[in-house]
Design a binder for these strands. Structure first.
Length: 637
RNA sequence: GCCCUUGUAGCUCAGCUGGUAGAGCAAUUGAUUUGUAAUCAAUAGGUCCGCGGUUCGAAUCCGUGCGGGGGCACCA
């Protein structure tokens, strides 16, 4: 006699056990048609699960996250079914739901080709049409292991072995085909609909461990309507258009080449952008009380041994042997160098907090497969700083770093910032009471900042807890940029000390912080966020002066000179092309202002402005133009 | 690093099953003097990523190295 409580509080009473589908039918016919999956006392179950006890339920449709995720999960099963029908002998492993889709990992000798993907997709459509009914069975563990072993499904057998004792081992059947699965699933393969697409094949390690063999992963996406699928594919396409590698080429900002994989060759315009960011940052840091320093790129091996890098970070370090056989390392981090500057001369507690910033270029030998445009490189410039302070100053200093980061992100158009807080890892140095103190101090700073934060348990650095600053861009992607770490280890290892009030020598606390993280990376993010249409003040080329014909060249040259003098980055285009051509060309390279000069303008001492992405024409006196845009050309302060 | 995929002119790409390369744009030169997203013509431009092999003959097939792309692993 189950009494079933609905989300609106109403209670339906049945005189015998009843399936979720039947409950949906009782509620409304349309719901029963749209129903995909049900939650019973908060646990997701199949719609044909039989309810025999009092409970509260909620029925999900494709409008709910639970519904669409079940569709994706079923699509993954159908993918596996299709693959095994087409390629007998292929072993199935796991096939979870991911953001916007799903994947399934297979073990097969031959590799899947792009054409195979199409074939598989077709077969999947067939399976949907066959509308194979789903049913679930709970098996005895050893029987299940035996069964899958016999069937040649070694990986599945492995998975069952790793299911904790006491947990149910359930199998899902779609027609004859079956898979070990926790569920829930749709009532039949037909419920999935046909709004899916296989997107790519890739390698993936068994159980995510690079010591294991590599499986073949097929990725796909699945939706509840053609429109949703099309929208998704469109979104992907739009994101591709923003790719900073593509835009960087089109806008003539930088390039990469074989001779130095993962290192940027900055072109004039890219470097201009780079320098604009640095000078903006200098000003900000100067105001915040930082002292800029610079330390050597190459330092003796002994220093890196002392700091612990040689042992802990050696695999990522470039080294250099001189003709006289001395071994140096090219710095992968700026901190040891910075501590040397701190160590020079006696420091007093009165000098603290001492904030030393450095635009330091570091080199790290990253695995070749990790390289990705500007976002993952082997040589990059950190907007680094190290703050030497006392333990009592930690919270305040952390807070001021957080504020500085937020201010800077805001100036660059990122208002949506999330924090990730990582606390002590298992492998760490320092006493627990010191950790208590530094974690508490850092957490306090986060709380005071009133920002949303998540906790990554045990993900801190070996020397201290850290915050990572994640910003969300214009199309909803998250990027990890800034970082702030509390270090109670390196200063001691490298012999840093200050004279305290009582005359005794003490070891200072060191905060490591980077605002953008890496200038290279941040520029990549900026390009993608703005789809190349950078804010005026940071645009590497802010204005192009275009004479209508060469009768007006002298005037255009004059205008360009005036602009340059007033601090606007501008050029004049004297090439023998017509106006249409020039407008197209310079619009494509995303120059914010096109300034047209013809007879009308010469006569009235004006230019006609055409802004990027606008067809409007605005006539303006030169004096006013300079007044208006020279202030906009400056970085925000 | 691992799996898959890819490498042809400055750029974007074509070149079927082997017979030593082609287009558009860009560049150069000339004509045109242009009023808001491609004016016309001519010229020049290539170690077909490198190395090795198969073959009478390789951009094309095979091996290998390097680079790019998509993932996985990595990301102090």
């Amino acid at each position: 006699m189950p009494n079933i409580t609905l989300p609106d509080g109403n209670v339906l009473t049945f005189d015998k056990k009843v399936t979720g589908l039947k409950v949906a039918e009782k509620i409304s016919k349309s719901l029963s048609k749209q129903a995909l999956v049900i939650s019973i006392n908060g646990q997701l179950k199949d719609l044909n699960y039989e309810i025999d006890k009092d409970c509260s339920i909620k029925i999900f449709t494709s409008k709910d996250k639970e519904g669409i995720e079940t569709i994706r999960h079923d699509t993954a099963h159908i993918l596996a079914m299709a693959v095994q029908e087409l390629f007998p002998g292929t072993q199935v492993t796991i096939g979870p739901v991911i953001e916007n889709g799903f994947y399934y990992d297979f073990a097969r000798k031959d590799s899947f080709t792009q054409e195979d993907l199409l074939k598989i997709e077709k077969k999947m459509q067939e399976i949907v049409e066959r509308d194979e009914p789903t049913h679930r069975e709970v098996w005895e563990r050893d029987k299940a292991i035996e069964h899958f072993k016999k069937a040649g499904e070694i990986y599945k057998a492995e998975i069952i072995k790793s299911i904790p004792k006491g947990e149910e081992v359930s199998l899902y059947f779609h027609g004859k085909w079956h898979d070990l699965c926790r569920g829930p699933h749709l009532l039949s393969t037909g419920k999935v609909g046909k709004f899916f697409k296989l997107t790519k094949v890739a390698g993936a390690y068994w159980r995510g461990d690079s010591n294991n063999e590599m499986l073949q992963r097929i990725y796909g996406t699945s939706w509840s309507s053609q429109k949703d699928l099309d929208d998704y594919l469109k979104r992907i396409e739009e994101a591709e258009k923003r790719d900073h590698r593509k835009l960087g080429k089109e806008m003539d900002l930088f390039h990469f080449r074989e001779e130095s994989p993962g290192s940027v060759f900055w072109h004039e315009k890219g470097w201009n952008l780079f320098q604009k960011l640095i000078s903006y940052m200098r000003q900000k840091q100067d105001e915040a009380g930082y002292k800029e320093i610079n330390t050597p790129e190459i330092l003796d091996r002994s220093l890196w041994e002392k700091s612990g890098h040689w042992e802990k970070f050696g695999a990522n370090m470039y080294t250099s042997t001189t003709p006289d056989e001395k071994v140096f390392a090219i710095k992968p981090m700026n901190c040891p160098g910075c501590v040397q500057v701190f160590n020079q001369g006696l420091k007093s507690y009165r000098d603290l907090p001492l904030k030393m910033s450095e635009f330091g270029k570091v080199h790290r030998y990253e695995p070749s497969g990790a390289l990705h445009g500007l976002l993952r490189v082997r040589a990059f410039t950190q907007d680094d700083a190290h703050i030497f302070c006392t333990e009592d100053q930690i919270t305040e200093e952390c807070l001021s770093v957080t504020n500085l980061i937020l201010e800077i992100y805001k100036d660059l158009g990122f208002e949506n910032v999330i924090l990730k807080y990582s606390d002590r890892p298992d492998l760490r140095v320092g006493d627990d009471d010191v950790w208590d103190k530094s974690e508490k101090a850092l957490l306090e700073a986060i709380k005071e900042s009133k920002l949303e934060y998540s906790i990554n348990k045990g993900e801190g650095a070996f020397y201290g807890p850290k915050i990572e600053f994640v910003l969300r861009d214009a199309i909803g992607r998250d990027w990890q940029c800034g970082t702030l770490q509390v270090d109670l280890n390196l200063p001691g290892r490298l012999g840093a000390s200050f004279v305290d009030k009582d005359g005794s020598k003490k070891v200072p606390v060191m905060l490591h912080r980077a605002l953008f993280g890496s200038l290279e990376r941040f520029i990549g993010i900026l390009i993608e966020n703005y789809a190349g249409k950078l804010p005026f003040w940071i645009s590497p080329l802010q204005a192009m002066v275009i004479p209508v014909s060469d009768d007006f060249n002298t005037y255009a040259i004059e205008v360009n000179k005036k602009l340059k003098k007033s601090g606007i980055t501008s050029e004049v285009d004297l090439k023998n092309h017509n106006l249409n051509y020039k407008i197209r060309e310079h619009s494509l390279t995303k120059i914010p202002l096109l300034l047209i000069c013809g007879k009308k303008e010469v006569d009235s001492n004006t230019v006609t402005i055409r802004r990027l992405d606008s067809k409007e024409q605005e006539n303006m006196e030169i004096k006013k133009l300079i007044e208006k845009f020279s202030s906009q050309a400056k970085s925000p302060s």
